[in-house]
Design a binder for these strands. Structure first.
Lengths: 190, 190
DNA sequence: CTAATACGTCAACGAAGCTGACCAAAATCG
DNA sequence: CGATTTTGGTCAGCTTCGTTGACGTATTAG
């Protein structure tokens, strides 16, 4: 895959062969993906952000509520690994959540150094409120796009994730043991 | 669409009817979407972020380079509308980019109050470097997922965007006049 | 001429990340 | 047992990138 010699003033120079045309398309494909991800992610988070702002919180609080809600009893260390931030950064968000009664810390029964994190009822209520807001938005997009598109969306997003994130996702999202494995695609499909 | 009465300890209570099963799936569907977007977006931006960090820049600089690169001669006002930030925020990123020779400002010939923004060669080079990094990542995901999935990905991401963002996208991404209109789907497909 | 527009800038602030240093409690290893 | 590692918390300071509010200037439009 060479260095795409000449794709400057796109759309100007009429491409000569199919090679150029293909290169141009791939270029425009990625530009489109960049736009879609920027705008899409921004608007995807806009709803919860508005609710959180009223409570003096931010996106980081939502992430904690989300992942603690998904895996009640998660340890601080596991949460840090999932979020990929430092404990100082987590602390500034987690401590207030505990103090204001959204999250409880209970010492682990095997290892009493651990603080197992769980949502309180208050925390569950807030998480659910944020969840519902986002649900409407996403479900609307899913309905418009259709089930085939949704499946494609999931496959591409999964592909955009790094290997570690993929592993964490599988751990965080038990793929419902009643159905068979969904898409154990290896990432060696060049 | 009622308030999902009872989906707490997911996977425990064997669902009784198809209704519950469906509700559960919709819940888990959204949880999965949240995870996918969080991890996917993060890893999507990780590559450029690393390059930018070496140059003492951040994601905001990349966005400016990206959108100025897409629409050379864009005005400051248009850029502000696309990014959805204040001029003060933009200023702190744009001014250094101009001072360090990545972007040029030329007065508009119709309206000389305007500063039309264009990438210099240096700016184009950096944008291209960031672009190539992301290209590898995205193309890998696209190849793994396949063309049908890519089309689905695009449809869903478009649906996640708000109406204004969708309009801006159409303006920013001229859908190649040689081909017919791609997907002029109205958002009234309930 | 006056008013609106496009852009810039100073000041202060907030959210959320970072590094580095240091500490306590509990588990683990020798 | 005693030393070390691990888990988690905390203090201090810094950076990026967003915000409001106020004010200034050039230029266009009424």
């Amino acid at each position: 895959m060479p260095d795409t010699p000449d794709t400057k003033a796109a759309g100007e120079a009429r491409p000569v062969g199919a090679g150029r045309q293909l290169l141009f398309l791939r270029e425009e494909e990625l530009r489109l993906a960049q736009d879609l991800l920027f705008f899409g992610y921004r608007d995807f988070t806009a709803g919860p952000d508005a609710i959180l702002a009223e409570l003096g919180m931010g996106r980081a609080h939502h992430r904690v509520l989300h992942f603690v809600g998904r895996r009640p009893g998660i340890t601080v260390g596991e949460l840090l690994a999932i979020l990929g931030i430092t404990k100082q950064s987590l602390g500034r968000v987690l401590t207030p959540l505990v103090e204001e009664g959204y999250v409880t810390q209970t010492p682990g029964r095997n290892d009493r150094r651990q603080r197992l994190l769980t949502l309180t009822e208050k925390g569950e209520a807030l998480e659910r409120r944020l969840f519902e807001r986002q649900r409407e938005w996403v479900m609307q997009a899913y309905r418009e796009a259709g089930p085939v598109a949704v499946e494609g969306f999931r496959r591409v997003m999964r592909g955009l994730m790094g290997p570690e994130a993929r592993a964490q996702l599988d751990r965080a999202a038990p793929p419902d043991p009643r159905s068979g494995p969904s898409h154990p695609k290896p990432r060696s499909a060049a």
